[in-house]
Amino acid sequence: MLIRVSTDRPVASSEITPRAAWLNRRDVLGAGAALGLGFAGVSATAAPTPRSPLSTDEKPNRLSDITGYNNFYEFGVGKSDPAANAGRLKTRPWTLRIDGLVDKPADYALEDFLKPLTLEERIYRMRCVEGWSMVIPWLGFPLADAISRAQPQSAAKYVAFETLYRPDEMSGQRGFPRIIPWPYREGLRLDEAMHPLTILATGLYGEPLPNQNGAPLRLVVPWKYGFKGIKSIVRLTLVAEQPPTSWSMIGPDEYGFFANVNPNVDHPRWSQATERRIGEGGLFAKRLKTQMFNGYDSVASLYSGLDLRANY
């Protein structure tokens, strides 16, 4: 399947959804007076976001689901811990280091780094390795844009990512026993990183990213399990060899480097054949069949010739 890279073509003004309609469509304004006021306050200044052809037309989860049900072990292992504890994290100032096998390594102040970039909305399915899923309207830009700016050298084959390590503000990093050898690390093959579906997100639902969702900058790779979406990124390094990644360091037979969503390859602890869509059906929700590559079939060509059973 051919993918149109949305950033390469101008968006017709007729395609741009007015912000008020966009918000109404998701019933966010009804979510509560406080939220409603919050949105009203910024809607006068924010520009409408172009709609990407890479977005799913499935109904996004409620904002409260997306911001209240998180795996972000830097703030605790419970699903509601990040929402409770992430407020202490200071995301300003924020420095993003891009280094390794690049011609232009640099430490960027995040605002400067983001200035030349155009943010766009991407509504993606998110499948957690634990067997649940959500639909999330991210706001972000292709990771390829960030990598290109650093001018990778020909020897660069992988991208390594690192989360902030700041135990003073991230209570989970002080926790016992140590769940993860901090800092959290992730990695992508360079062709995966350059794929147009792969984005760095700075917001969701048209607003800046809440801390518990990985503010101020996080990775989103919609055809991989959610744990690949490293949060609160401080460093991006181009490397020649496959970098170590946190969950495969903890359990190499449970979590692989690729971590592509694959209903045919079980996690050793539980089946991956089905998933439960969060926020739908309440106590009597039906499971959905999990799709290969989480339904993002266009990425299959990245893995032709690779045994996905061995390279899980």
Binding site: N61, R62, S64, D65, G68, Y69, K79, S80, W132, R276, I278, G279, G282, L283, A285
Partner: peptide, 10 residues
């Protein structure tokens, strides 16, 4: 049943 147990009541 009443939706008080969070986004994944099951």
């Amino acid at each position: 049943l009443s939706g008080l147990s969070g986004p994944d009541p099951i």
